[in-house]
Design a protein around this nucleic acid. Structure first.
Lengths: 112, 112
DNA sequence: TTGACATACATAGCCGTGTTAGGCATAATA
DNA sequence: TATTATGCCTAACACGGCTATGTATGTCAA
């Protein structure tokens, strides 16, 4: 179980990074993150949807309703240019904190 | 500048890990973290003191007033047994999230 | 002496955000 | 037909960081 603080801190960078691989919709993003984390990160819909709305309002994402193969309406999100650029900043912040923890834990720092 | 979300998520593991190296007091912890992060993590007192109080209330820390060489009264914190044990859990959570991000960023995962 | 500054702790109000809980709707499955 | 999985959304609540402020002491220079 991941703490709500960590959930909150990782939501934005994770959404941005997932969408960097191509557009996706809310419900699917939750599954993708769960799989990527090997069932360790279990997002709730009540957490993700407001995050997506906020990020769209901030201009990081763009949404569009589409009807997929299933015939069901889905709200797909993709990165805006601003969103694509912001990944680097999110990444830098994360690495900065991670490397500080890594020092205290006797781990090797992350480059790149 | 680190986002408030990341600040919040990293506060507890950072405090625990700093105190794992020996007891310390609030004002000093802020400096320690700033140095360790190479000036990238700049905690405010209004953020840290409530964190320390909470962690003590949770039984993770134990405090004691001491008079150091400077003749000034300081409130030193050290890990309780519970606090020492909790580091591993905090670490596991952090690594879980980090490795998920690392996958998306094409980085090598952290092993322990 | 006096003023400025770093040290050192603490709290109050504002605001953002995850959680819990609930609602609504459709397609697939039993 | 009933249930489950899918798929979106929002409201009330509680928690916690930020800003601002208050208090107090030691150091150093004018």
């Amino acid at each position: 179980m991941i703490s709500k603080e960590l959930i909150g801190a990782s939501a934005k960078p994770l959404v941005l990074s997932v969408l960097a691989q191509g557009e996706d919709y809310g419900y699917s993003i939750i599954q993708r993150v769960r799989q990527l984390s090997e069932d360790q990160i279990e997002w709730t819909e009540g957490m993700l949807y407001p995050v997506l709305h906020r990020m769209e309002k901030e201009g990081l994402l763009v949404s569009s309703w589409q009807v997929g193969d299933s015939g069901r309406k889905r709200k797909y999100y993709r990165l805006s240019k601003t969103g694509a650029k912001s990944i680097a900043r999110e990444q830098a912040q994360w690495i900065a904190v991670h490397n500080t923890l890594a020092k205290l834990w006797g781990m090797k720092p992350c480059t790149t």
